[in-house]
Design a protein around this nucleic acid. Structure first.
Lengths: 404, 404
DNA sequence: GCAATTTGTTTAGTTGCGGCACAAAGGCAG
DNA sequence: CTGCCTTTGTGCCGCAACTAAACAAATTGC
């Protein structure tokens, strides 16, 4: 401690306090014009103008005066706000059992560039993460864009604050692997600037859908999704991921949804995990499951193309009923104002939306909470976009500090 | 709209922005001195001094300079901060199946005066609330204290934003009774100033315990408690009650904890509600249940005095195992950093804490979340204190506005 | 009694933002 | 085309809440 510059600058570093909220409004598409920004922020036009000018000076947004055709209202047309195409990006990475992938993602959730990635995942997390980061670094070199951070989505619960992957069983990775530490060191080694983050994939899907997809505007968003095996959940509260006190919240796979069901490795019977995932569906429909990394596709294709087959239909209805029971339990506990489904659960919803909604309404305690909207996830690469959101968060919280 | 005074005063009305946080720190006992207040608020000594002086000028706190014996540290002793004994109070009211009660509660959760209340609850909510408010108004007349608001705890889920009691079945009240509206109008009719609030009793227990009891300092506090019948839950996140999007969160009574258990009115079997409440305990211990309004006391007494009886012990262990299963499910979903138990669950915890903790650790997914501390509720009249917290909240958020 | 330490107080300066007045840019009616 | 109305953007003033820095006060330890 030199005793001089430690306590100084607290206010200077904070910068204009409305800057972060303003950027978030543009980022999520809720502030198309400066006039809307003014009312959404609850500040005067003068302040909103200054904030927009500052975000423009930072190279994050564009302020287009007189874009020609405005809305039909009278009065002076408002300046339009939009994310700059050539602004900074974040590096987003994703690891699943069917491969890994890297992309550059700009503000607004726009995927600027994607690397082809790999379809096999090695057993050594350091090697996998090294390759995926290198793919992202290559994209950065090709595009010459500025990178302000990196985010990684993994199909495992991530314990906080350590950043270890607790159950990456579908990756053949060792349990408890320090994925955040590995990812961070690989990002540093690749010469990429900015902080690095790691999160559970379903959490990041929920975050992405909340900001840019089917979850926009929800205050209490519950997301439930399958991968190839197992079920994950996530909750976004007031725009922030709720990960619990140690990152393990919304581990919903072991809710009991079938008292007479098959045993689960958790010690119980009939858990959501083993009753509503793609393997459960294929088994119930009496099909031969293919390799693990294609279970989701196999189950989804079966559901979409052979729903007329009685065995398929019966299996689907069975899973829908079980899923509905699980969702009803979660609705009773969390009381969300919107539920979105991904993976096979999304396909089940679309196969028979009325049945699923009826089960949830019937088994959640009161009609009011039973009438919670249940929707499909809509984004194409939501876990990549969600990983990018992690990296964008410091910028959204305080653009001045995050961008130096 | 007169077009003149609508948008003005937004900043003036806000007042000194650190005032609310400072009062909350004193209120919850986390700022015993001005020096601590300075560091907790993260402001300069000058600001903390001004804030403390302003709270003193508002008549809320005392600033005692030189209280004689300070702590052993060297340097100039810091001024002590404390809640004023003769400061304003809130009116707290509570309705349970075994009676209702009114009290005056000061800052810091101190119960200033209590009205004896009544042990029978009539079927007409308007009449009950009228009587309990009148009892509180009488206390106010006797003490001459200033009242800044009123809060009511009811043993029912309270739907938001309507403020209706959805399932006050143990009160013989009609479902959907507009309790907030009735309570507010009775408070107004009694000439009591300030806003009126209504909440679920377990929620308010959790809030009170978080601020003044066993939940202090927890960031993610889960509270589970029984009354005479049924089980309720509550979650306090970052100091605020999580009531979900429509007030119905943490309706935990219908988690499945015994697949072969008795049928529940919800349509399932073996729900937490019917497997771990006082009636379930008395039945399992082969005792004759007394009248509904004494079930909790009967079960608690039995558990504490006759634990040596094999039937009692077996019943207790059965309930502990079921409760542990339910808690494990909640821990998996919510990942709290502390769990507190009330009602019979508290007694069960104290009868065999190791057994309960072992079940939760065993059935929650990872050791880390399994090691969540499970504690007993400690406050004497926590639902009254919690109801008072509701009424204090506007003052804690912005003392200047709330106190005019 | 004197230094060291910690806390309280005063003063000056910075700053984010509201309030206000005015300018700008469109629609609408004649 | 020309006013008039409506809505939005901008410059200027001032306030209020804070920080920073210097000084004063109260205690411990030597």
């Amino acid at each position: 401690m030199n005793g001089k510059s430690t306590t100084t600058r607290t206010k200077l570093e904070r910068g204009r306090s409305a800057l972060g909220p303003a950027l978030e409004l543009v980022h999520t598409g809720r502030a198309p014009t400066r006039a809307v920004l003014t009312s959404e922020l609850g500040v005067t036009r003068a302040t909103a103008g200054a904030v927009a000018a500052e975000l423009e000076a930072l190279g994050l947004i564009k302020v287009d005066s007189s874009p020609g055709s405005a809305a039909g209202s009278q009065g002076r047309p408002s300046h339009r706000l939009s994310i700059r195409d050539d602004g900074p990006v974040t590096l987003a990475a994703q690891v699943h059992s069917d491969g890994f992938r890297a992309a550059l993602v700009g503000l607004g959730g726009r995927i600027v560039a994607t690397a082809p990635g790999c379809v096999t995942v090695m057993a050594d997390p350091a090697q996998v993460l090294g390759e995926v980061v290198e793919a992202g670094a290559q994209l950065l070199r090709e595009t010459g864009l500025r990178c302000v951070g990196a985010g990684l989505a993994v199909p495992s619960a991530v314990a906080e604050p350590e950043g270890t992957a607790l159950n990456p069983m579908h990756l053949a990775w060792p349990g408890g692997a320090p994925v955040r530490e590995i990812f961070t060191s690989r990002v540093r080694a690749a010469g990429i600037t900015g902080p690095a983050f790691t999160g559970n994939d379903v959490n990041l899907v929920a975050l992405a859908e909340h900001r840019h997809g089917a979850g926009r505007g929800a205050q209490h968003l519950l997301c439930v999704a399958t991968g190839h095996r197992g079920v994950g959940g996530a909750l976004v509260l007031d725009g922030r991921l709720h990960t619990g006190s140690s990152g393990l919240a919304l581990e919903v796979g072991h809710l009991t949804v079938n008292p007479e069901g098959r045993p689960c490795h958790c010690g119980g019977r009939g858990c959501l995990d083993v009753e509503t995932d793609p393997l459960a569906f294929l088994t119930a429909a009496r099909r031969t499951p293919g390799p693990e990394e294609s279970l989701l596709k196999q189950a989804g294709d079966l559901l979409r193309t052979e729903y007329a087959d009685p065995a398929v239909r019966t299996a689907a209805e069975e899973l829908i009923d079980r899923l509905g029971l699980g969702l009803a339990g979660l609705v009773n506990i969390l009381n969300p104002d919107r539920v979105i489904l991904g993976g096979l659960h999304r396909d089940l919803l679309e196969a028979d939306p009325d049945r699923l909604r009826a089960v949830v309404a019937d088994r959640s305690l009161w009609g009011r909470s039973g009438s919670v909207p249940i929707l499909s996830c809509t984004l194409a690469h939501s876990s990549l976009v969600g990983a990018a959101e992690l990296a964008w968060q410091p910028v959204l919280d305080d653009p001045l500090t995050a961008l130096v």
